[in-house]
């Protein structure tokens, strides 16, 4: 999309895109560097953490050399930067010492498979709910949606997820509470993309598709509903403001139906700040995914990050944060592109 916008856009738009990319790269560099140094300032030693009390001095020394932790900090930092640039994240410092890129390639699709439908759900509820609230201002629907948005946004995600598990998983026994797919069905699925819904569609494995969708329901609803609150509020405010504009009054004066005025004219124009909010919410979405993945035993990047922070696995933590930063930066960039297309004023 970025390339399309760049090629088809005006000179001003191209300049804007290049400037945004120019700002994104230092942002990722600063964030990655911060993570590198913070991890090393924090108390805790990955070698001792891995070897425990039984590790001998020789074993500790051997492991330090293997992991490159015996080198001066500045040399380690240089290697880290080189690795980031070449997308060679090295090996994990604990457990199986597997290449980080392998671990991320297994887990990243799981996170994508969770956050995409969760975002879609949050946006659908947020935009429709916000528009309805604005159009029924000071009516029961408006008050109800405002209360909903505040309550849902303030719920602790782990508590909300647990309640859904207990209700739909344990009491009603309607939906699974853990994992991405039924373990028995999983033995029949041969992943290509590691996005199980896509993989089961590609292979025509319908039991796997049903199972993957079933397993998606509770984590998606948990994450999606929590995030929908802020979109309801943002959309409502912007639609209310837009409804007071002159061109809306003109539309009404021309006898255009109220539904068309609200959903056809006002909502479209009110979406510009909401789109900006989507970019900002990506980081919150990823943070929410960390908790959601833990609650639902979803083997994604969030659970991986938590696990590796506790073992001081420097390389894994650095790589995941860098990956998250890259993702947030790219989505922010994409949002800015859309924004600049929708509202040319931002480019000039």
């Amino acid at each position: 999309m970025l390339l399309y916008v760049f090629i088809r856009g005006s000179m001003g738009l191209r300049r804007y895109i290049l400037t945004r990319i120019g700002l994104t790269l230092p942002m990722i560099f600063i964030l990655a560097s911060l993570v590198f140094f913070i991890m090393r300032v924090l108390p805790g030693d990955p070698v001792r953490s891995a070897l425990g009390p039984r590790g001998t001095a020789e074993q500790v020394e051997h492991m330090r050399q293997t992991l490159g932790l015996d080198k001066p900090l500045i040399v380690q930092y240089g290697i880290f930067l080189k690795d980031i640039i070449t997308l060679n994240f090295g090996n994990s410092m604990v457990g199986g010492h597997r290449p980080i890129i392998d671990e991320m390639s297994e887990r990243f699709p799981a996170t994508i498979e969770l956050i995409v439908p969760a975002s879609a759900l949050a946006l659908s509820i947020g935009i429709i709910g916000g528009a309805v609230a604005a159009s029924k201002r000071k009516a029961v629907a408006d008050y109800s949606l405002r209360v909903y948005s505040v309550v849902i946004y303030s719920l602790p995600i782990f508590w909300f997820g647990l309640m859904l598990q207990l209700l739909f998983g344990i009491q009603l026994n309607l939906l699974p509470v853990a994992g991405r797919i039924d373990p028995i069905v999983r033995t029949t699925l041969h992943p290509v993309t590691n996005l199980y819904v896509i993989d089961s569609l590609i292979s025509g494995n319908w039991p796997a598709l049903w199972s993957a969708i079933q397993h998606l329901v509770l984590p998606t609803v948990t994450l999606g509903l929590i995030l929908s609150g802020v979109f309801v509020r943002m959309t409502r405010i912007n639609v209310i403001e837009t409804l007071q504009a002159d061109y809306i009054a003109a539309a009404r004066a021309r006898g255009i139906r109220e539904r068309v005025v609200v959903y056809g004219h006002a909502l479209k124009n009110a979406m510009i700040p909401v789109i900006t909010l989507i970019g900002l919410q990506v980081a919150i979405l990823l943070a929410g995914a960390v908790l959601t993945e833990t609650i639902f035993n979803w083997p994604g990047m969030g659970g991986y990050l938590v696990q590796r922070i506790s073992t001081r696995d420097y390389t894994a933590v650095q790589s995941v944060i860098a990956m998250f930063a890259l993702l947030v930066a790219l989505i922010s960039l994409a949002v800015d592109m859309i924004y600049s297309l929708l509202d040319p004023r931002v480019r000039y």
Binding site: G169, T294, F296, V306, Q307
Partner: peptide, 23 residues
């Protein structure tokens, strides 16, 4: 015929999974 070992990150979820028969 088959044993499947399923890995959990959270003991609470492991406990719920045995209660609802997922494991």
């Amino acid at each position: 015929d088959q044993i499947i070992i399923r890995y959990f990150s959270d003991p609470q979820t492991l406990s719920l999974a045995v209660q609802n028969g997922e494991i």
